[in-house]
Structure formats: C-alpha cells, structure tokens
Computed example of a mutant assay.
Amino acid sequence: MATKNRRAAVEATSTDTPVGRLFAVIELASKMGMISAADIVYMLDLPRPTAHRMIATLEGLDFLQKMPVKGKYAVAPKLVGLATAILSSTIVYAPIQTLLATVAQRTGETCGIALMAMGEVEYIASVMGQSPLTLQFQAGQRAPMHCTSSGQVFLANLDAEQLARFLATGPWEATTEFTVTQPRMLADKLRKVKSQGYAKNDSEYISGVVGAAVPIRNREGQVIAALTISAPRSRRSLDEISAMVPTMRTYADRIGRIL
C-alpha cells in the first residue's frame, strides 16, 4: 500500500521498461524541483543501482544537471528548451494562440503565457493588444522571477523548502526603483499572492508598466504556467488591470485543460 501511495503522489509514469523509467525520473524531477537517488528509490520503488544508472544516463544526455546541494539533481536547460520547442511545434499551440487572442481582444492588452525555466520565467507565446500604445513579449524572451507578476505566481506556489532555497539567493538586482530586492519583503508579497490567487505588478520590472498574472494549472491542480497581461501605466491603472483578473482566470482554466 505504501508503494502504491508513493507512486500516486508523482502521477506515476510506467517503470516497466528502461525508457519508461527514464521518463518517470524526468517527471519526478520536474515535479520535485530537485531529486536524489534516494528520492527515486523511494518515490518510484526502483533499486538503488537502477536509480544511480538513470541519473547518470540523464546527466550524460544533458537532461539533468548536478546541483550545489550534495547528491541533488535538477532538470537541465536542454530539457527545458526541448519542452518549450515541443509545445510550440505541436497542434496544442494553435488553440492556445486562439485563446490568447481572445484574451487580448476582450481586454485590449498584450497577454502571454510564461513557463518557469531555470530560475527565470520564459514567455512561450504572446498576443499584442489592440491599442497603438502597447507592449510586446517575444516567444523565448526571459525575465527575472522576483520582479515579474508571472515569476511571483510561480514562487508563491512553490512548497516551503523550494521557496526557502529561492529566497536564500537574495537580495536581488533592482531593475527599477520599485523592484522588491529583499527576501523578507518578497516573502511577504508572495503570501498575499498565494492568498488572493494572482500577482499584480506596478513598475517592478519595467518602469511605467503595470501587469498581472494568474496561474495555469493542470488537471492535478499543479501550476504549470502563468497567464500574464501588461500595459503602459500611462493608459491603464493597476486597478484596471486587476479588474481583468476574473477574465484571465477563465481563460487560464481553458488553457490548463489543453495543456
């Protein structure tokens, strides 16, 4: 029964074949953030020699990378790039773009989808708003976690251990005079983000730009992406952007069902 519960906790990929075991380890790493051989043994019910062999194979393929924490490994940039490329090149991408276009039409503002990638957020899709004075985020563009609304959505939904590790990397660089750079101040903000279910941003990343982000969850309720919206503060107030959050949530739910 204990083994069955552990496997359910990671929404187990079949480990009956060598390929299945490799994908199960990748899935585990993506959900836990960092893993060790002991995690693989316990969570996937695999022998310790097999766990070490899986890690060595995935590290050799540049899909996992060794972390500063002894014995821990995390998803490597090559695998993150592969996941982004797959999403952008499959039939899944077309309906996502259609939904983004609808959000942009209903709000009149630029919207996009962001993933968490190696300590940053990466925009994988965007649609520009209809106003002549608008913003644009190109697919593949990256931004910091601590000062973007999408990044703060991801951080607010980390477990306590993962969030503590991120906060330990601060203080961070200020990109504007409004950037939150101190870990304690960011932790306070993230508690509010988690409580209200969305993040809002007023010139923390780019001066004169306001924005908001809501989580995109999969069927298991895990945050897998963020839906963002942004506008020049000269044309939209932060309150006006915040009033768009219910619409954003509706479409984030629809995008989550596709992903």
Rank of each mutant, 00 (worst) to 15 (best):
T57A: 11
H52W: 03
P215I: 05
P215K: 03
I224T: 13
P215E: 05
N157T: 10
L227E: 02
V69M: 12
Q141G: 10
E109V: 01
P47K: 04
A2F: 14
K78V: 08
T50C: 05
A252I: 00
R235A: 13
I224K: 14
A51Y: 00
A24E: 07
G129I: 12
V121H: 02
A231W: 05
N201F: 01
Y42D: 08
T107Q: 02
D62Y: 12
A231Y: 06
I96Q: 03
F63A: 08
E11A: 13
T228A: 01
A117Y: 01
I91V: 11
I113H: 02
V245G: 07
T3A: 09
S150L: 04
S88I: 07
V69Y: 06
A74W: 02
T134E: 15
T15V: 15
S230V: 01
T57G: 00
T15E: 10
N5D: 09
A199P: 04
G211H: 03
E122K: 04
A37K: 03
P144Y: 13
G197P: 06
L82I: 10
Q141R: 11
A231M: 03
P68F: 12
A160L: 11
Q222G: 11
I86A: 13
T98S: 09
R217L: 05
A101F: 00
A24T: 09
T13C: 04
A139V: 03
I229K: 00
M185A: 15
Y251L: 04
A74P: 01
L259W: 14
Q182V: 07
G151P: 05
Q97R: 13
S89T: 06
R257V: 03
A156F: 10
L115V: 09
Q162N: 13
A8Y: 10
A37H: 04
Y205D: 14
R142A: 11
S203Q: 10
P47R: 06
A101V: 01
P18F: 11
F137I: 06
R217H: 08
G119L: 05
T250G: 08
L28M: 08
Y198P: 11
A85G: 08
V10W: 13
A231I: 05
N218D: 15
N157V: 09
M128S: 02
T17L: 08
A12R: 14
F63N: 06
E11P: 02
A164I: 06
K31S: 15
P68I: 12
T107Y: 00
P68Q: 10
D39E: 14
G108W: 04
E204F: 06
M248F: 06
D202T: 09
R48Q: 02
K70T: 09
L115H: 06
V245M: 05
A29F: 08
Q136S: 13
A213R: 01
Q97I: 07
T98P: 00
D202N: 14
M43E: 10
E173W: 03
A114N: 03
G20N: 10
D16W: 03
L82G: 01
Y205L: 12
R6I: 00
Q105I: 00
S149G: 07
Y42V: 07
N201D: 15
A9K: 09
N5L: 14
A8C: 05
R6M: 03
A56M: 04
K189H: 12
K31R: 15
V121W: 02
L99R: 11
T15G: 14
L133S: 09
E59Y: 02
V80G: 05
S149N: 08
V69D: 13
I206Y: 09
